[in-house]
Simulated assay, not measured.
Amino acid sequence: MATVSEKEWTGFQGLPAATQIILHTLLAKLRKQKVDKITIVLLGKGGVGKSSIVNSLFSERVAAVSAFRSETLRPRQYSRSKDGFKLTVIDTPGFVEAGRVDAALNSIRRYLLGKTINVVLYVDRLDGPREDKVDVKISRAISQAFGPQIWPHVIVVFTHAEIHLEDVTYSEFVSRRSAALRNIILKESRFKTVNTKVPFVLVENCSRCSENGEHEKILPDGTVWLPVLFEALVDLVLGSKKPILIDEKMIGISKGNPLGSIWMPLVLLAQFVLIWRPIRKAIDRDLVEEAQRHSP
């Protein structure tokens, strides 16, 4: 059973003042459109920083993080509330290697069954390989597990974005890396014209990340990344994309034949009457006869 944690969004007050102003503006936009809650699901390989994103979104340590391995072994749901608005983030097990993609997705989609999702954050490292067969397998598996309708709700998040390059400019590297992953997603999702842009955001969760004069974490190009991430979330939620319900039809999980709950007890009863009870009687009879033969 997945863990659910819901509290007041106290970490909000710990954000830099400039960031708080932007988030208050975004919350006002949501309230104006009568949106009082957002649910986000994080998907991606293990160890790419999904749990760190959870902590950054809430500006507090709510998810366990390890620099050496994935700490999330099952889906974990975290919720925080502020001024009538509820933010829910569902952290999921990582796809550590290609062989675990299907097993991990089966676990995730069973947990998500019946939940309404606004945004999916597909997380990968910015400094990862541009041509990765695991990315192909993951994108294909996500399409098969949830259907292509999941992709219009996806924002790609590149972690470890504070990288220093010598042979190429930062913007050029980001452009190449994002284009490579975007092309994989477009191919495996079989997009035609829907959401062909596949938006992406760069983040750097490291505590040693560079800061500006307002104590906001910035990327090598000076971008304050946390407000940009929240802006991308709000833009997608307030866009034309309605929240998506993860139901049985979407993911192909059936509750089973309702007649099974009727027939199974009858089958077990028939087995008891026709098989096990006669066997038990025969055993008891043999025991009695054996006891009589050895009695003085």
Rank of each mutant, 00 (worst) to 15 (best):
L15R: 14
G252A: 12
L23S: 03
W151K: 09
E166A: 00
V123D: 01
S107A: 11
L87M: 15
R182E: 15
N205E: 06
R69A: 08
T10S: 15
V123T: 06
I53C: 02
I253C: 09
R182K: 15
A67Y: 13
Y78E: 15
F68I: 08
L229H: 07
K50Q: 07
R61S: 05
K34A: 12
L23V: 07
A291D: 09
L26I: 14
A179D: 15
K192I: 09
D284T: 08
R277V: 10
L15Q: 13
K29Q: 09
P243Y: 01
S207C: 05
Y170C: 01
K37E: 13
L274V: 12
V273Y: 03
R176E: 12
I262T: 12
L259V: 12
N183I: 08
L121I: 12
F12T: 09
S143D: 07
S107P: 00
L87I: 14
V65R: 02
P16N: 11
K115C: 04
G239I: 15
Y78P: 06
E248R: 06
E97T: 07
L287A: 05
G14I: 14
D102K: 14
E289D: 00
V48C: 04
V41A: 02
L42R: 11
K197A: 15
V203N: 10
A18E: 15
G46K: 06
S295R: 13
S52V: 11
V157C: 08
K197I: 13
V65M: 12
P152R: 10
S261I: 10
S189R: 15
T169D: 13
S178G: 08
F230C: 12
L268V: 11
A67D: 14
L181I: 10
V134E: 09
F173G: 00
K197E: 09
I275A: 04
H153A: 03
H153S: 07
V203R: 02
Y170N: 00
A179W: 10
I117Y: 00
E97A: 08
N257W: 08
A270K: 10
P227T: 06
Q13F: 14
S59Y: 09
K241T: 05
S261N: 14
T193C: 00
R125V: 02
V120G: 00
H215W: 03
G46Y: 13
K32G: 02
A18Q: 13
G47N: 03
A2R: 14
P16K: 04
P148D: 14
H294F: 07
L105F: 04
G84S: 10
G94Y: 07
K242M: 01
